[in-house]
Amino acid sequence: MNRQQVLSRLAARGWPVLYSTGRLATWDIGSEAFASAPWFPGFIEDHQVTIDRPARMLLRCMRLPPLESLSFRLHARHLMGFCQKNDDTRRIAIVYNPEFLPYVQALRPIKTIFYIRDAYADEGGWSQKRENELRSLADLADEIVVSAREMSKILPAKHQERVIEIPNGVDYVSFSAGHLTPEPTDLSDVPEPRIGYIGRLNRKVDWNLIRLIAESRPNWSIVFVGPVVEGEMALGGRQKEMDAVRRLKNVHLLGLKQHNQLPAYVNRMNVNIMPYDLINAPWMRSGYPLKLHEYLATGLPVVSAPLSTVLPFASVVAIAHGLDDWLRLLEEAIAGRGAGTPEQRRAVARENTWDARVDRLEQVLAGLL
């Protein structure tokens, strides 16, 4: 996750960091997140980052405005308590989603960075209220950061020229050395060649393409490492497409893994892929995949859909247009003829580390103080 990589490094460099995902909502009742949540608000520490734990007693209650207002004020006061115990002169809000605009207004940071992580309007569930929040946050922000230049197109024209591009990076040391760790037990029985994908399994994946590849090459193992996002799959009828893939014997869904486990999986594939559905998930056209440089750090071949952010890396990433292209490029990669050499792929990854990205973000932060 972009935020984990950025915030943990800022904390390691001496910045007091508080991370919050906001409150749970009434519709979370009955979920695993609600069951594991404490009754009262609190904080935990992880990699020197202070993490706000959503509490059951402070739920979002959109159908009961007075209760919603009280819940929000109490949660904002809880977060303000952390700020006041630390260096208040450096209270900078880094906001990843426009729906957190009310928190910026309540916490009154000295400076605000709007860090755009996605083309929000293309994700589904977008509304005029969210559009207004985005515009207001852009007006309020002292700096606007994007992980890909095309994401700035969601902003009003007056803000597009002032964005700062800080693409996603890679923990190069971990991903380049993943082959030195033991092979995961749930992967050891999966026959080669293995075609791997790491990440959330949702409607951005081209499930029809995956089915056609798996059916066309039954001797290939297609391996998915990541959680299935069932709620998103139901949107647009994608659940049936994924169910058809699940039934195939040469498709292996290994489930959610901790981030520090991923290098061991990615390094045990023959090819790693980014099979995005750019028609049904249009926001991916401007996305900068977190896995791009993680894949390259392994030195293994990579095949991708034609994302605008991936095209500049065509010397080390094979770009596939349609099923025939995918089959041909995967065959070449399995045979050792993928785009670039192992060292060329690793060299690109070394130029795109998270440490370098956070160096740039620290320059932005220093400029605000």
Results as ranks from 00 to 15, higher is better:
A349H: 01
S286F: 08
I110M: 10
T185F: 10
W207H: 15
V95R: 01
G196S: 02
A93N: 05
A11M: 02
K111N: 13
E343Y: 07
R246W: 03
D186H: 09
I279V: 15
G199V: 13
V229G: 04
P184R: 01
V364G: 09
A138K: 11
S315P: 03
S31N: 02
R73K: 12
F224T: 05
P275L: 03
Q258F: 10
L262H: 05
L180H: 13
L278Y: 14
H179V: 04
R53C: 14
V170F: 02
A76R: 03
D88E: 14
D122G: 05
V302N: 05
V245S: 06
L7K: 01
D171R: 03
T185D: 15
P156E: 10
D189S: 11
L327K: 01
M242I: 08
Q261C: 00
E332F: 10
G237T: 11
K153D: 11
A11F: 03
W220C: 10
A305M: 03
R238Q: 15
R357D: 04
I334M: 12
R350P: 01
S286P: 06
H159E: 03
P156F: 03
A264K: 04
H259N: 14
G14R: 05
P342E: 11
L18T: 07
A141F: 11
E362F: 06
G236T: 10
D277E: 09
L101D: 03
P218N: 00
L368K: 13
A141C: 12
G199W: 01
L137R: 04
A76M: 13
S286E: 13
I164N: 10
I94Y: 09
L7T: 04
L18N: 07
S152G: 02
G236C: 12
R194Q: 12
S304I: 01
R337L: 08
L254G: 09
T89I: 11
I279A: 14
L180M: 13
I94E: 04
N2V: 12
Q84I: 07
G226N: 00
N270M: 09
E351Y: 00
P275C: 06
N272Y: 05
V229R: 11
R63P: 01
I110D: 12
N250K: 01
E241Q: 15
C61F: 02
R53T: 04
A25R: 15
